[in-house]
């Protein structure tokens, strides 16, 4: 019963926190809308996004809310199905980068010494690499399936997370409760996984949310360059296809672009809001 009461408190408290911070509130509302749209895509979509219609580059009307593209596909439905692709890429890539960054950064900061030096050098190498061109090369060599794109974005964006986690681990390992954990007999790895990472993960959570938006943008850029997965609809691809019709059918690229902006904005707002909620200064109060 006690635990239940506590959980309710936490839930209430977090709702209050979200209400307190404006950017978090706006971001969360946008994200919830996006999630609903992506989950119930078939309900919202008015047409099959893959079916080629007879009306090509039709202006927005009551049958095609946002018009059609050069192949007669319904832009509105394509954008709705594209939400799935973009969110999936963003979240999976950010998760990969979050996990790698947290582990490598945590190990480097907590164990220190030679391991730290080695991992920091690897980190520096990745930091120097022109990431986008690396992604281009990989996609050109190994094909542009959705999984490839997710993996490569995730594998190149963990550097910031690793740096953050390393700094966290370095400051946490000097704290008394870590000494206490040693003196009670816990092993190094247990301490890293049970105490250091859970206590130092907040800035990584905030940063990872921002990486989601970065990944969505990267995917859109890849698609815009014609290197996206051709088998699934994505926002970048819609923009890419609409480019040729820019003068005669402005709606194709414009609406897809607006959705990209909104999505990226929502994750940035959430990231920024989380940063405020979880910052060490405020942390003691929640």
């Amino acid at each position: 019963m006690e635990i239940k009461r506590n959980n309710q408190n936490i839930f209430k408290k977090s709702i209050n926190k979200i209400n307190d911070i404006k950017q978090l509130k706006v971001g969360v509302i946008l994200l919830v809308l996006l999630l609903i749209v992506s989950i119930f895509a078939p309900v919202f979509a008015t047409h099959d996004p893959y079916s080629l219609g007879d009306e090509m580059i039709a202006a927005p009307s009551s049958t095609h809310y946002l018009g059609t593209d050069g192949l007669g596909r319904d832009v509105f439905s394509m954008i709705i199905y594209g939400t799935r692709t973009s969110l999936m890429i963003g979240i999976v890539a950010a998760l990969i980068s979050g996990v790698i960054g947290t582990l490598l950064g945590g190990i480097a900061g907590f164990f220190g010494g030679k391991i730290d030096r080695l991992l920091t050098e690897i980190n520096n190498i990745f930091l120097m690499m022109p990431t986008f061109f690396l992604i281009l090369i990989v996609v050109a060599l190994f094909g542009s399936s959705l999984i490839n794109v997710m993996l490569i974005i995730g594998l190149t964006s963990w550097v910031g997370n690793a740096r953050l986690m390393r700094a966290q681990a370095m400051s946490l390992r000097e704290r008394t409760f870590i000494m206490g954990a040693y003196s009670i007999g816990e092993k190094k790895w247990t301490i890293l996984l049970k105490h250091i990472i859970p206590n130092g993960i907040f800035p990584i959570i905030a940063n990872t949310t921002m990486i989601i938006s970065g990944a969505i943008l990267t995917e859109a850029s890849l698609s815009f360059l014609g290197l996206g997965d051709p088998n699934v609809v994505s926002w970048g691809q819609i923009i890419y296809n609409g480019r040729e019709y820019m003068t005669s059918a402005w709606w194709i690229s414009t609406f897809a672009g607006i959705v990209v902006v909104l999505t990226v904005l929502s994750f940035y707002l959430i990231g920024d809001g989380l940063n405020r909620v979880l910052s060490p200064k405020l942390h003691d109060q929640n």
Binding site: R175, T176, F177, M179, G180, A181, S183, I184, G185, K194, H195, P198, N199
Partner: peptide, 18 residues
């Protein structure tokens, strides 16, 4: 660890805050 134990100076930081 069972034979030798330590009590720390700062009780506010002796336990994992989570």
């Amino acid at each position: 660890r069972r034979t030798a134990q330590m009590i720390f100076q700062n009780p506010f930081d002796t336990f994992d805050p989570r």
